[in-house]
């Protein structure tokens, strides 16, 4: 299938990627080509086939509910680009855009 520039812009927004005009044009062309290749999957009859999301067959693998040592506050914040009084500094939620 062919992806229009508008569709690519929408996908970039969903993916939180700020793409330049030239990137948008490039991905529109490249993703269209890749999706056209992927469209060959439509030739495969799958109406009676269950999807596979995990090959181990494991489900509900629980661990015991107990308190154990974890990262210290200092270690958890070590790589934070910005921190304040022992907290991560986040972007504003309501002021965006």
């Amino acid at each position: 299938m062919k992806l229009t520039l508008e569709q690519v812009k929408k996908v970039a927004k969903l993916a939180k990627l700020n793409l330049s005009e030239s990137e948008l044009a490039k991905y529109s062309e490249q993703l269209s080509k890749i999706l056209s290749y992927i469209d060959q999957l439509n030739k495969v009859e799958t109406s009676k086939i269950d999807p596979t999301y995990n090959v181990t067959g494991l489900s509900n693998a629980f661990s015991p509910d107990e308190i154990r040592p974890s990262l210290t506050q200092k270690a958890a914040l070590f790589n934070a680009p910005q921190q304040d009084k022992g907290f991560f500094v986040t972007k504003g939620v309501f002021q965006e855009e």
């Binding site: 992806l3 569709q7 690519v8 996908v11 970039a12 969903l14 993916a15 990627l17 793409l19 990137e23 991905y27 490249q30 993703l31 890749i34 999706l35 992927i38 999957l41 439509n42 495969v44 799958t46 086939i49 269950d50 999807p51 596979t52 999301y53």
Partner: peptide, 28 residues
């Protein structure tokens, strides 16, 4: 970026079944 874009598209509303679920069935 290219793969994030491709993946975001195939998981997006309206395309999820045609791409992501379809691929998971072929995987079987």
């Amino acid at each position: 970026k290219r793969r994030i874009m491709l993946g975001t598209f195939s998981l997006s509303s309206g395309y999820y079944d045609a791409y992501f679920t379809k691929a998971a069935r072929v995987r079987t």
